[in-house]
Simulated assay, not measured.
Amino acid sequence: MSRRGAVEAPCIAPPRPRPDNPRMSETPSYRAGHVAVIGRPNVGKSTLINALVGAKVSIVSPRPQTTRHRLLGIATFPDGQLVLVDTPGIHRDFGKASATAMHRFMNRAARGALEGVDAALLVVQAGRWDDADALAYDTLAKAGLPVVLVVNQVDRVKDKAALLPYLAEVAQGREFAAVHPVSALKRKGLEALVKDVLALLPEQEALYPEDEITDRSQRFLAAELVREQLMRQLGDELPYATTVEIERFEQEGRLARIGAVIWVERDGQKAIVIGKGGERLREIGSKARVQMERLFGCKVFLETWVRVREGWSDDEAALRAFGYTE
């Protein structure tokens, strides 16, 4: 998708702010490459990618495993281009026979993020380092990639002096190309991060046109924005039993008409998503529509339906039909 819009709805999205990145004399040559963004679930990987790209290309919610697909966020600066690979979080249960088809798909997507990349960002939560973080680091180290440690959410740390011993402990026995405390949400510390990551990339021309922000279409992004609201508004388990399929995406002048189907696995789940008198479904649709208009830069008429397909999350054919492909 470009800032001029995709085939389905050629709306002109307004420019988004990005980190300031004046031309750097230390790296006069243009650099570009793929950068995997890795970390345990819910450390702010998608928020970081959106901040660097300057547009919402990856959905965000407080729930782990919000990201299901591998997608590219394309951030272009005067000195280079970062092609950021957003993936599901890394887990220890790779390859478990008991995992559902959905879990196996997400694990493959996470592993595939390391194929053909030039560097990696290991995103962790400030003040916290656990076995899942260590697993993510070990995965990157085995791949032989230069790793930049991104310590996110530093705005939540009241005692900034406590970060120094934390950083020293994390770095002990591990090799990082650079370490950057940042706040992706508040866009703090990103300029220095961009500079150091660009320095790790090969000298070459941009891999994508300057106005491209993702490799995904508006149809895909529309489905994700509806799913984001499901993740935000439903209970602990139900969001993981839902997926979204876009049945219609039509352009009428400056209006995009979008029809979205929310798939669940049981009739009882359908009733919960719809809510009393359809109230919850209307709220999901209303908030998703606002996000679509903000991203696509045009008016959106969004219709939503809820349908049941039993066991879709453990059905390889159903996953392919719903767009979960490698």
Rank of each mutant, 00 (worst) to 15 (best):
A109N: 02
A110Y: 09
A110G: 12
R111W: 07
G112K: 02
G112I: 05
A113G: 14
E115I: 05
E115Y: 01
E115L: 10
G116R: 11
D118V: 04
D118Q: 14
A119K: 10
A119V: 04
A119M: 05
A119F: 06
A120G: 09
A120L: 07
A120M: 06
L121H: 00
L121M: 09
L122R: 05
V123H: 06
V124I: 15
V124C: 09
Q125C: 10
G127V: 11
W129I: 03
W129A: 02
D130C: 08
D130T: 12
D130K: 05
D130S: 11
A132M: 10
D133F: 06
A134C: 05
A134N: 14
L135R: 13
L135F: 09
L135P: 01
L135M: 13
A136R: 05
D138S: 11
L140T: 07
L140P: 01
K142T: 14
K142P: 00
K142M: 14
K142E: 15
A143R: 14
G144F: 03
L145F: 13
L145W: 15
P146I: 15
V147K: 03
V148Q: 04
V150K: 02
V150A: 06
V151R: 04
N152E: 09
D155M: 04
D155R: 06
R156G: 02
R156L: 15
V157E: 11
V157N: 05
D159P: 07
K160V: 13
A161N: 12
A161C: 03
A161T: 13
A162R: 15
A162H: 04
A162S: 15
A162L: 12
L163I: 04
Y166T: 06
Y166P: 08
L167F: 06
L167H: 09
L167I: 14
A168I: 12
E169W: 07
V170A: 01
V170I: 11
A171I: 02
A171S: 15
Q172L: 13
Q172F: 11
Q172R: 13
R174T: 01
R174S: 03
E175R: 15
F176N: 08
A177F: 02
A177W: 02
A178T: 08
A178G: 12
A178Y: 11
A178E: 13
H180F: 11
P181H: 06
V182A: 06
S183D: 00
L185K: 09
K186V: 01
R187F: 01
R187A: 11
R187L: 00
R187D: 01
